[in-house]
Nucleic acid binder design. Structure first.
Lengths: 193, 193
DNA sequence: ATTATCTATAGATCTATAGATAATGC
DNA sequence: ATTATCTATAGATCTATAGATAATGC
């Protein structure tokens, strides 16, 4: 019951992918190692061949989740030629995104949990956050590089804040109002630049 | 070892207050009933005289936390006569607020956890959220009631999103950049109205 | 021979309950 | 007598490890 070295590297990647999805859906403390391994189709015991501890996995998944946001946002930016930013905002603040936790924005799914986690998690996420804002800034209109980075940060804060708020209620009307209000605010912020 | 009915009602309030602080600091899954009771100066067993379950307490604390945000924001609005909104924004996005989880904004401390919690939590938070946006709208400048409510929602999303982002990193410079970027963005949004 | 897997389990932690105790309030 | 407290513990869950098993790779 041993697998090849290629499979090992492959399994490790899949484990991070599966764990990231599960953390986004249930929260970091909302799912245990045993259930994660079951979801990945592996036994509990083999987990500790891949990671020293759950916290070690969490650090890697948090970095991976932020990198994932960067990939999704920049690919949404480059998907359309006309009004790419506005279309990205509409997609981000859609009910479809709101209702899809596992594959959605990791910042919105896990954001406030970061503050309660260890230094290791913050250290792992930091370079990915820096890279996220730099990459976003490239795709935004605006004068200076500095201004565009500020705009990226402010936009990301509004988007994730809006999505998080929309997920806090079971009132469909309120949730929709939140999405619409943030959408129009972010769009007019972009237009003002 | 029995206390008066007045003390019972008093203890219940204190328990909610202590639990709300602890949840904001450690996250909802980050602290157990035993430690909560120890923090409140009561024994574990007496908890279940006050609440059916931890989830029941969580629902009440989430509602309480949102009500608390409303109280803090509106009192900050009314604290100063000149530029009250800008001063509130500066306070909210200060390093002091960022570094004080237990007594800070409950939306920023717990926001993304709501999505992983039960219907009961959402139902408890909903009326408080509605009231929060209504109260904020009263204090904001703007034309129509509807516009002011939209502005309140968008502002709250930006503020909490910004604070959450600033708490995701251990890089002091990045964290400060986030606070400043969101500050200036929110302020120019307010000015545009 | 090495190494990654599996099952089984230790040990810690967490929610909730049982039963005894003692102060309140009719 | 009622009721809220306390200590002790049941039962579930979760992280991590031990030891046996079997496939890989020198």
């Amino acid at each position: 019951m041993r697998i090849s070295r290629e499979k090992v590297a492959e399994n490790r990647e899949r484990l991070i992918q599966v764990a990231t999805d599960q953390f986004r859906e249930h929260g970091i403390d909302g799912i245990g190692v045993a259930d994660l391994m079951k979801e990945a189709g592996m036994s509990l015991g083999s987990f500790y061949g891949y990671f020293d501890s759950k916290e070690h996995l969490v650090s890697e998944c948090c970095a991976h989740a932020v990198a994932d946001v960067k990939e999704k946002i920049t690919s949404a930016f480059s998907r359309s030629l006309t009004n790419p930013v506005e279309k990205t905002v509409d997609e981000y603040l859609s009910t479809a995104h709101r209702d899809e936790l596992a594959k959605g924005c990791g910042l919105a799914a896990l954001g406030s949990e970061f503050a309660h986690k260890t230094e290791a998690v913050h250290a792992a996420a930091t370079p990915e956050l820096i890279s996220l804002f730099d990459e976003m800034a490239r795709s935004l209109p605006g004068s200076s590089r500095k201004k565009k980075r500020e705009q990226s940060i402010a936009m990301m804060a509004s988007l994730m804040g809006g999505l998080i708020l929309s997920r806090m209620t079971d009132d469909a009307k309120l949730s929709q109002d939140i999405l619409e209000a943030v959408k129009s605010s972010v769009k007019s912020s972009v237009r003002a630049c």
